[in-house]
């Protein structure tokens, strides 16, 4: 073995150390997304709010909300982030 692993600790490969496994998970995920998006076609809606009736509202809202959240949070970070020893204690 060429890896500088400490003695007595055999180098072990775990499941996600293999990029293929990662890709498998991702593709499963994409498929699930497509599935639930497609399910909307077979769904009978009890709309309690007009926006709910918009096609793909939940999917789009979920995606958009997440993106907005991250962007706003980045903005917040500019505002409030300080070094770890900011408080005196």
């Amino acid at each position: 073995m060429s890896d500088p692993a400490p003695p007595g600790e055999p180098r072990k490969r775990y499941v996600f150390d293999d990029p293929r496994n990662v890709r498998r998970v991702l593709w499963t995920f994409y498929a699930a997304c497509a599935l639930v998006f497609g399910a909307e076609f077979f769904m009978h809606r009890h709309v309690e709010h007009p926006w709910e009736g918009l096609f793909g509202f939940y999917a789009l809202f979920g995606f958009g909300a997440y993106a907005l959240l991250v962007i706003l949070a980045e903005g917040l970070r500019l505002l409030v982030a300080r070094r770890p020893d900011y408080y005196d204690d």
């Binding site: 994409y30 399910a39 709910e52 939940y58 999917a59 979920g62 909300a65």
Partner: peptide, 19 residues
Amino acid sequence: FEHVVTQLQLLLFAALCFV
């Protein structure tokens, strides 16, 4: 069915955004 699907839509597409 509707609740499950819409909830999954919300969550999975939000997760998609993460991906």
